[in-house]
Write a protein that binds this DNA or RNA. Structure first.
Lengths: 111, 111
DNA sequence: ATACAATACCTCGGAGTACGAGGTATCGAT
DNA sequence: ATCGATACCTCGTACTCCGAGGTATTGTAT
C-alpha cells in the first residue's frame, strides 16, 4: 500500500525544493525538509536522507548551488537556485500543472 | 529534466490501471496503455513495458487477477480487479486527492 | 551541572519504478 | 506479399525513497 504512495510522491520533493528556493531564497537541508512538510500541509513528509540526496542530485545537475554558512555557530550548508534551475523549474511547474489537471479531471477532485 | 517528470509520473500508472479496471471492468495490457493515454489527455504516456511490469506487480500483490482469453484469435491476457484491489484503490484515491489538493494550493492550479 | 530533545550534517544499502532495446506472433489492409 | 498496428514478453540501466546508522551542536528543563 504505502509503496504505491511512496512512488506517487516520488519526484515531488525536487519540485517542492526548487519552488521553495525560488520563492523564499537561500535555505538549507533541514529547513527545507520542514518547509516541504508545512507547505504541503503534511501531505508530503520527506525523510532527512531524501532531502539531502535530492539536494546533492540537484547540485550535480547545476540547478542549485551551495556554500557553507560563515559566522553561523551551527554548521550549515546553504543552497540557492541557479538561473538554469529557474529555467528548469518553470518548465517543471508547467508540466506538473498539466498532470494535476489530468488527475483532477480523472478523479473528480476540487472545484 | 525529463528524469524529474519521469519520477513525478511514477506510481500514477498503478493508480490509473486500478481505476480503469474498477470503472470499465475487464481489460488487457495493450488496451490499458491506450486508455491511460486517453484518460489523461496524453499527459501520461506509459510505455508497453511499464504497463506490463505494473500489471505483474499488481498481480503479485493480489490486487488484480488474470486469465487468458478463450475464443479470442489474437492471444490476450485479461485482467480484472480483485476485492482486495478495490479496497486498496479507495485508500489510494483518497491519498492522491490529498496530494493533488496540496499541489493545487502550492502551485495555484485550477479554480 | 547534566541530561535530553531538537537541530543539523552525512553515507550506505535495499526496495521499488520507468522505460528503452530487443524479441515473438497475429491480424487487417494495401 | 508486405507492412503497420495490435499483442505479448524479458532484461538491464538509471533513478528515487527512505530506514538505519553515524556525528556534532544548541537550547531547555531538571
Amino acid at each position: 500500500m504505502s509503496r504505491f504512495l511512496r512512488s506517487i510522491r516520488a519526484g515531488l520533493y525536487t519540485l517542492m525544493i526548487l519552488n521553495i528556493l525560488d520563492r523564499e531564497g537561500v535555505s538549507y537541508g533541514y529547513r527545507l525538509m520542514v518547509r516541504i512538510r508545512e507547505a504541503s500541509g503534511w501531505t508530503l513528509n520527506p525523510s532527512e536522507s531524501t532531502v539531502y540526496e535530492t539536494l546533492k542530485n540537484l547540485e550535480e545537475q547545476g540547478l542549485v548551488r551551495s556554500f557553507w554558512g560563515e559566522g553561523v555557530k551551527h554548521p550549515r550548508k546553504f543552497y540557492e537556485i541557479t538561473d538554469e534551475g529557474r529555467k528548469v523549474l518553470s518548465q517543471l511547474n508547467r508540466e506538473v500543472r498539466s498532470i494535476v489537471g489530468a488527475l483532477q479531471r480523472f478523479l473528480g477532485v476540487g472545484c
